[in-house]
């Protein structure tokens, strides 16, 4: 049996199995740490940085850092919460997000986080980048305007032999997701749906699906993101 260890989040005593990531351990203790790039069960990558917490005085990503005995974690600290809000704002200003017309609206994790963090007007200037809308793929539409470059699709979607279907191109503020034409040809409908669902925002859409859930029935219509964890 895995060894049980004790640690604290904002002074609250918690327990976890040794080796568990902070995010997962927090969830089990009904404490919500916001995430965007994380996919439970898939090797984490720590790219969006929104789950940053202070561990023994240092900023660490909760999705990539395992808990250890006696760890003191700060999560709800106002400075940390402001950094998270800033990251959400940076994501909104870095791309082109027009929520009212987006297929993912109401089911979008970025939008939900913006509500949770009560983002009004972002403190940063909109960059209005020129980005592509890619519809050449047989099953998918890739709207680069909405991509927050979280890499979920890269990490979660592979073909049976483990070939990547999605990858990162270029670097810095010019990075972009690219789709492999050879291996994605064999993508099944189910895989296409999986890709669209894994995307936290509306950057990957299944062709000919458009809006699925009526207002009121969408994931974050009734309660803020994270409340399922807090009210478990």
């Amino acid at each position: 049996m895995a060894q049980t260890i004790k640690f604290t989040i904002d002074g609250v005593e918690c327990t976890a199995k040794k080796g568990q990531y902070i995010v997962d351990a927090a969830t089990e203790n009904h404490i919500y740490i916001p995430t965007l790039c994380n996919i439970p069960g898939v090797k984490p990558r720590g790219s969006c940085r929104i789950c940053s917490v202070r561990v023994n005085g240092r900023m660490m990503t909760a999705c990539t850092t395992p808990v250890s005995e006696g760890m003191e974690i700060e999560n709800k600290d106002p400075d940390i919460e402001d950094i998270r809000k800033a990251i959400i704002e940076l994501m909104f200003t870095e791309g082109n997000h027009f929520c009212p017309s987006c297929e993912k609206s109401g089911n979008c994790e970025l939008q939900a986080l913006a509500y949770r963090y009560q983002m009004l007007a972002p403190r940063f200037k909109f960059m209005f980048p020129k980005r592509r809308l890619e519809a050449t793929h047989p099953k998918l539409i890739k709207d680069h305007n909405r991509c927050i470059l979280c890499k979920r699709c890269i990490r979660a979607i592979k073909d049976e032999e483990g070939h990547s279907l999605f990858a990162f191109a270029r670097r810095g503020h010019n990075v972009e997701i690219i789709i492999d034409t050879k291996y994605s040809k064999n993508m099944t409908d189910e895989q296409a749906r999986e890709a669209a669902d894994i995307c936290p925002v509306g950057a990957i859409l299944v062709k000919e699906r458009a809006y699925t859930d009526p207002i009121g029935k969408r994931k974050y219509d009734k309660q803020p993101i994270g409340s399922d964890i807090e009210n478990l």
Partner: peptide
């Protein structure tokens, strides 16, 4: 720095661009 960031982390990818402006 804007040219050389790897582009992985949200703040590193975007904030220097805003500060440069």
């Amino acid at each position: 720095f804007i040219e050389e960031s790897c582009g992985s982390c949200t703040p590193c990818r975007t904030l220097p661009v805003a500060i440069r402006e």
